[in-house]
């Protein structure tokens, strides 16, 4: 437990607050990378996922893409993109890598959410005279929201953990302390930074858990409560 105590001590030490990257700045850049990457990924993957789920077209491609993209080694991707973009665009290169990482789970959440809507409900919506656009906007998307949020949730968790790699290419994020700590054999610093990442991940996960519950439409929730 000694190392654990030292790690906690490191988090609150003056060492962590000074230097070329103070802890507060590391947390800020870590979260900024995470949010910007997930937002960009969502802007691409959510509309695409909805179209795929609604029309059923391109479903095979979406499944294949989200499966294959999970196998991409993120560390290699970060370094490769830094070299491709050039060292003056390290932030853009790293963000692109994280966006690519976040797209598959969001895409899967978006199309499976729309797809999972009971066909009878969709038929019912059509029967009362809704246009396809209204079916998507008023029935499929709201009912599919919990699954979409689930996709965003896993994307965010994956990205918040992977942003650690940004520490390999520049003075950003909590990964910086880990990369530095390994070389100077400062295990308290490594574990301390890792603990902060864990705390961020757990907090973000809790946030999404609440959001996931909040977006369940009233009618659906009422039915679940009476049936269970």
């Amino acid at each position: 437990m000694e190392l654990f105590a030292e790690a906690l001590a490191w988090i609150f030490s003056s060492d962590a607050q000074s230097g070329s990257l103070p802890l507060s700045e590391a947390i800020a850049t870590h979260l900024a990378f995470t949010f910007v990457s997930v937002l960009i990924a969502a802007a691409i993957a959510v509309p695409a996922g909805w179209v795929v789920g609604h029309t059923g077209r391109g479903r095979e491609a979406a499944v294949a893409l989200s499966g294959a993209a999970r196998a991409v080694p993120s560390f290699g991707l970060v370094l490769l993109l830094v070299l491709v973009f050039g060292v003056t665009h390290k932030v853009g290169a790293s963000t692109t890598a994280f966006v690519l990482l976040a797209i598959p789970p969001i895409l899967a959440g978006a199309y499976s959410g729309v797809e999972a809507v009971d066909r009878r409900v969709v038929d019912g919506a059509r029967a009362v005279g809704m246009t396809p656009r209204q079916v998507l906007g008023r029935v499929e998307i709201p009912l599919g929201l919990p699954l979409l949020i689930g996709g965003l949730r896993s994307a965010t968790l994956q990205v918040v953990a992977t942003v650690t790699l940004a520490g390999y290419v520049g003075s950003w994020g909590l990964g910086f302390y880990i990369v530095q700590g390994i070389q100077i054999r400062d295990f308290a610093q490594i574990l301390g930074a890792a603990l902060v990442i864990v705390v961020l991940a757990v907090l973000l996960d809790l946030l999404f858990a609440l959001l996931e519950r909040a977006v369940v439409p009233r009618g659906v929730r009422a039915r679940h409560e009476t049936s269970s």
């Binding site: 070329s20 990257l21 370094l79 830094v82 070299l83 050039g86 060292v87 003056t88 390290k90 520490g167 390999y168 290419v169 520049g170 003075s171 910086f176 990369v179 530095q180």
Partner: peptide
């Protein structure tokens, strides 16, 4: 100080 990881030489040449 700026951590430049594996791209230190490229960073120097690029002027960062």
């Amino acid at each position: 100080f700026e951590a430049t990881g594996d791209t230190t030489v490229q960073d120097l040449v690029a002027g960062t």
